Simulated assay, not measured.
Amino acid sequence: MKRKLIFCLVLVAVMLCFGGVAQASEVVIDGKSLVFDTKPAIINGRVLVPFRGIFEALGAEVQWYGDTGKIIAHKGNTTIEINIGGPALKNGKPVSLDVPPRIIRGRTMVPIRFVSEALGAQVHWDKAGQRVVIITGKMHPIFYSWEYGGKVYSFGPVNLTEYEYQSILNYYRNKPHPRLASNFAHLSTYVYSYDSDGEKILKTLVNRLKEFAEKEGIRGDRVVDFVVSFVQAFPYISDSVSTPYDDYTRYPIETLLERKGDCEDTALLIAVLLKELGYGSALIIMPEEGHAAAGVLGGENMYGTYYQVGNKKYFYLETTDTGWPIGVVPPDFVGARAIVVPL
């Protein structure tokens, strides 16, 4: 009882002494913004955050002992013990904290640098953005699998850390996303806009597709079928379900990393992949139908529906589901007005 009373007195003193604190704007873990129920606070140059939110975001199991004001967290071979207004321990060894944990606005707050580094993460302070950036080193492997000619092919993993994965996606998500259906002049924005990491991933994939094709004896126009089957394996998902927007055209690298998209997204990706492989390609937009597809410059053995631009024939490629061969237009879009934009 006496121990509880002492803890309560310490708790009240801590709350009174630190009623007014500065607030940090944001905490980002591996490129993702972390949302707490209480905003991060800055005390003596140190950022403190709610204990449960940060421990769980870093993959630790955490327990709170309210009668003594003790926090114990476990992750792998690491055990952290933190005491409100008292010492901190890592694997039983005391750790000096220049700003100890405390109660702020009714929440138990802990120093984010100590917790993150104790669990093996790197911590950086973004002075311009007034935010904490944490890099865990957690991997985000990407695997691809698709079927062609009755055989299953697979590629991967593309080994990116979670931070690298989110950073590449954030780079494209923060770029303008004009609607292609209403302004085709923006097509080059999507086709040629790569960062160095994104371009490296794209080139790696193109080279692997070439290697697969050569190894399996897939040549000529059959390479187009092979590449189309790769993208057709990506699940179709509408923008309103997968993004906060009703209309959001993904950059090809976004579609490639997320392995999903709607007709516009997968059509753009196929057109870019074919272009990188040395084939003439185009984006086909059916404005009244709200649909998009890809087109490939006709070869000797291509048959089916095509669209003529000058003296060039671009054969229709459906991208939204598996099994659609070159030149076959889904029944819902047969005869629809199409705008063909060569890459």
Rank of each mutant, 00 (worst) to 15 (best):
L119A: 06
N44H: 14
N83L: 13
P94H: 02
G85A: 10
F315C: 07
N311C: 09
I326Q: 09
I112V: 15
L277W: 02
R219H: 15
L317I: 15
E164Q: 11
Y248V: 07
L202D: 01
L187T: 02
M302H: 14
G31F: 03
I168K: 01
D262W: 03
V10W: 14
S96H: 14
R250A: 12
D37F: 13
V14Y: 15
G31I: 05
E258S: 13
A336I: 00
S281T: 10
V28Q: 02
G137K: 02
L317H: 12
E147R: 03
S188Y: 11
V133L: 11
I218S: 06
H291N: 02
V272K: 00
G323M: 07
F226K: 01
E117S: 04
Y236I: 03
T38F: 10
I285Q: 08
P111V: 11
Y190W: 07
Q23G: 12
G69N: 10
P101I: 05
F36M: 08
Y153A: 07
L180Y: 03
R3F: 15
E276R: 03
L9N: 10
V340Q: 00
G86E: 11
Y171N: 04
D239F: 02
D262A: 06
E276S: 05
D195C: 00
K203L: 01
I104Q: 04
S182Q: 07
V227G: 02
I339E: 13
E147H: 04
S182C: 05
R52G: 10
Y144C: 01
R219D: 11
K203S: 00
V223C: 12
D247E: 14
G69I: 07
P287I: 00
F143L: 12
N170F: 02
A88Y: 10
F226C: 03
Y307M: 03
K260F: 04
E318W: 08
Y248F: 15
T189C: 01
T68I: 15
V152Q: 15
M139L: 12
L160E: 04
N170E: 03
W324Y: 13
H177P: 03
T255W: 02
V206S: 00
R222H: 12
S167Y: 01
G261R: 00
R173T: 02
E117K: 05
L343V: 13
V152N: 13
G45V: 04
N183Y: 10
G53E: 08
I270G: 06
G149T: 10
L180C: 02
R222A: 14
V158P: 04
V47T: 15
G76N: 09
E300A: 15
S33V: 14
P94S: 03
D262Q: 04
R102V: 14
F155W: 13
G149E: 06
E81W: 12
Y316P: 05
L317G: 14
Y307F: 13
S242C: 11
F315T: 05
R337V: 01
V47H: 06
P111T: 09
A121C: 02
R337A: 03
G327K: 10
G290Q: 01
I253D: 00
G298V: 10
P94M: 04
F7N: 12
A213S: 07
Y251W: 04
C263Y: 05
I339K: 12
S281A: 15
I135H: 09
L11V: 03
D321T: 14
G290P: 01
P87A: 15
R250P: 06
Y279F: 15
V328Y: 13
V191I: 13
F212E: 09
D67Q: 14
I72E: 15
